[in-house]
């Protein structure tokens, strides 16, 4: 990841900003300029997701690239936000508690960094709701 590439998407990463198509009513994360459903008939507006949803599927990753090596074992999931859009995210709880169907909410965490002297990337991950 490079600084401009990250910075350009900062609103989506920090604040879960995506798109809502006023024509078909679908929600998308991250921001899309063209509605994949309606294409040119679509009417997209930016939308800030509430940050709540549920786990559609998940895994616990034990082997990864150097960039994420300090996080293993970490839980990864596809979360369906309450508005309907889905995204891939780490779940910051103890991996063994992460399971399909559990409710989650967004949290603000470090996503990574460019080594020890490079920029730190912040953004959204998810956490299990208290049961």
């Amino acid at each position: 990841m490079t600084v401009p590439r990250f910075w350009r998407e900062q609103q989506s990463r920090y604040n879960l900003v995506g798109s809502h198509c006023k024509t078909c009513g679908n929600y998308y994360y991250p921001i899309r300029n063209l509605c994949p459903e309606c294409r040119r008939d679509g009417d997209m507006e930016q939308y800030k997701f509430k940050g709540t949803g549920k786990i559609v599927t998940c895994t616990v990753t034990h082997t990864t690239s150097d960039e994420f090596n300090d996080l293993v074992p970490y839980a990864l999931a596809i979360v369906e936000l309450d508005e309907g859009a889905k995204l891939t995210t780490q779940i910051v709880d103890e991996p063994e508690k992460v399971a399909i169907g559990k409710r989650v909410h967004s949290v603000f965490r470090k996503l990574g960094s460019d080594g020890d002297s490079g920029i730190i990337y912040y953004g959204t991950k998810f956490e299990l709701d208290k049961e």
Partner: peptide
């Protein structure tokens, strides 16, 4: 890369999520 990879989604991780749901 921007919306899967950045969260630490490796290829085994992505297929593992397919497997987990297939199992369920």
């Amino acid at each position: 890369r921007e919306w899967e990879g950045i969260q630490g989604a490796t290829f085994p991780g992505i297929y593992a999520m397919i497997a987990k749901l297939h199992m369920a």
